[in-house]
Write a protein that binds this DNA or RNA. Structure first.
Lengths: 373, 373
DNA sequence: TCCCATTATGCAATCGTTTGCATGGCCGTT
DNA sequence: AACGGCCATGCAAACGATTGCATAATGGGA
């Protein structure tokens, strides 16, 4: 017996005889369906049915069974049920993969944005008895393989992809596995139904807002280049500006990665440039907050010296000084809708073509960070 | 057959005969161990051993098996394995339970603070093959019962409690179940080993810092009254102040609940009072940020008009203007250590009395939000 | 009164993996 | 050359719940 075999209370568990071995102290043997059945004096099948199909069993029997269940605290063993039913009642939520920071340090993945998304997901799924399994991808191939494993091992019945990509390309394996899957806040794909905000339109709205204020020179703090949403937002932003006669070279791009630090970095570049933009659109609130901070540190002021727009509408955006003008994403609703779409897929329903892309409205919330130039 | 029976591809699955029914399109039948065994020409047992105990099988056989595994993409079915091995390889992370907001709205639970905690937990657990199951308690009895269910149903092998309490009292059921369990950032209890920061000492350090600056009238923004950590922090804070001869009535308490909004509310009360404190200690960064915002909105300035200290050291704290003086909790380390402690418990190890409470050092980070009065 | 329909329950197979025990072959030792 | 021991593998019994089919019991109608 190898050293890592740490199963407890097994050696004493000879099946013969009727004296049950005392359970290992501190780790009680759980009640099982037969225990309940024995108490009531029925068969295990009846107990099973009493719980799953109340109408298939005599009300009186059912009551006795329910009493016994309460008495013993019986809960059906999930592994056994999953095995038999070929359903795990788990949903895997795959979270985006920010690359390591410069110092090789990993960063938390559940940012304020994802946090509320998770809330909606969790609420919707748990209503239907599904549990949420968290699959963080830390830009590591190993992690990514493990996540695919969860799927092939049948540990989850569905997948929610909260990201733009799986860097090591396992998304293909997932799609191949045929597991129900829904993407969130991501550009659509033929194989992946998605729920998202109308990012292009939101970006156009931002552009219009800034144009209306009279701005003519613009900055744009990007997301990571690989992120599909980055292109959608930039596209919408640029399109509206150009339609208003703004030349492409009046739009300066600053590299960002959605995170606070990259917002500051962008601001540093911004500050050093000649002929600065008078308005900057950062496509995450965190970057906008980082940007704003750097501007103030440099002794300039928002919006007097530069107007600033964020994206997402995280709680902290309201607590900036001045409060950030931003695009409020209905995060909880996005999460809930994605979960509901996944529930339908898991139920075996097919989605009509026009149901495969759900675009929700995002709302421009004008705070104090934008003004006339 | 009831309407919600949506099992697919079952009706055709008569076990007789050898023609396997074609799997339902879009939901392939997963490879199982016998398929691999058949390809290699060995028994299922050998395949199982080749994967679990490489030394118990001929290297040559093992290689052939591994090839077949790769070829077929075989992954052991988790439900079957859990059932047989009585281990699920899942850990439940129970997240704190903020009450509903005034409007009856639920709030996200994965705040920036918990987010990094989760990172540490996730990294440590996944190294050992455990997956993380997220159990949010939304102050709802039903949810809480479901969470206890996960445990009694054997769906998880261990529990991490990231909270001060389970409002509906299921913690007792959990402790009774004998499942390995570790608490995080919570006051200890005889039944629950914990990992936490030395909150009392951290609060004393804050008090000393403010005293050193010359402050003599203090404010304190509380956490929820039921939260054990609230009392520990206040205790440490007050103790040091009193030792320095500050009378108890020179310390004003403002009610808070850790969240942004409650920080603003506290500031509103603060602003209206006569003989205001010159220094305020808010026991979460979020409340400090909310407080600071309100102060600025009122036209006052931090730290000129009031010094402000937070607690946690979340990323946003560095991006306030001025950067927040705060107590930096080593969140990722806390998470990792808690996970490691849980791993030991799940391995069946007993913890010595002095190992049951791990206190980590928190570090006072002096930002720009504190100054002489 | 008899028979059929209906309903409540039990029996037993099944889900896929692990593992104690049995077996058979091989090698080394005397 | 014979025998003991070891090693690699196979066999089959679990793990606990679900469910198709069989059966027993009940009731109603003719």
């Amino acid at each position: 017996m190898s050293i890592d075999d740490n199963r407890r209370g097994r050696s004493s568990a000879g099946g013969n005889g009727e004296a049950r071995p005392i359970a290992h102290p501190g780790r009680r043997r759980a009640t099982k369906i037969e225990d309940v059945a024995a108490i009531v004096g029925v068969s295990a099948s009846t107990v099973s049915r009493a719980l799953a199909r109340p109408d298939r069993v005599l009300p009186e029997t059912r009551q006795k069974i329910l009493d016994a269940v309460r008495l013993t605290g019986y809960t059906p063993n999930v592994a056994a049920r999953s095995l038999r039913a070929a359903r795990s009642m788990n949903v895997l939520v795959v979270l985006s993969s920010p690359p390591k920071t410069a110092e090789g340090h990993l960063e938390a993945v559940v940012t304020p944005f994802f946090s509320e998304l998770l809330l909606g997901i969790d609420l919707a799924l748990s209503e239907h008895g599904y549990a949420v399994l968290l699959g963080n991808l830390y830009d590591s191939r190993q992690r990514e393989e493990r996540i695919v494993n969860l799927v092939t091992a049948g540990q989850v019945d569905g997948v929610l992809l909260l990201l733009g990509r799986m860097p090591h390309g396992s998304r293909h394996s997932l799609e191949e596995s045929g597991i129900p899957m829904v993407g969130v806040t991501t550009a659509a794909s033929p194989d992946l139904p998605v729920v998202m905000v109308d990012d292009a339109e939101a970006a156009r709205t931002v552009a219009r807002h800034l144009l209306d204020l009279g701005h003519r020179r613009f900055g744009y703090v990007t997301g990571p280049a690989w992120h599909p949403i980055e292109h959608v937002r930039f596209g919408g932003f640029l399109e509206t500006l150009q339609a208003a006669g703004i030349p492409a070279d009046a739009v300066t791009r600053y590299d960002g990665d959605f995170r606070l630090g990259s917002g500051s970095d962008a601001a540093k570049v911004f500050l050093q440039s000649a002929g600065r933009p008078t308005a900057v659109f950062a496509i995450s609130d965190e970057m906008a907050i980082g940007f704003m901070k750097e501007i103030r540190t440099a002794g300039l002021s928002v919006p007097a010296d530069v107007s600033l727009v964020g994206f997402d509408g995280i709680p902290f955006a309201d607590y900036c000084e001045p409060p950030l003008t931003t695009v409020r994403q209905p995060r909880e609703v996005i999460g809930r809708q994605a979960a509901e779409m996944l529930l339908r897929l898991m139920r075996g329903e097919r989605l009509a073509a026009d149901e495969r892309v759900v675009k929700l409205d995002a709302e421009l919330r004008v705070g104090g960070s934008t003004a006339r130039p």
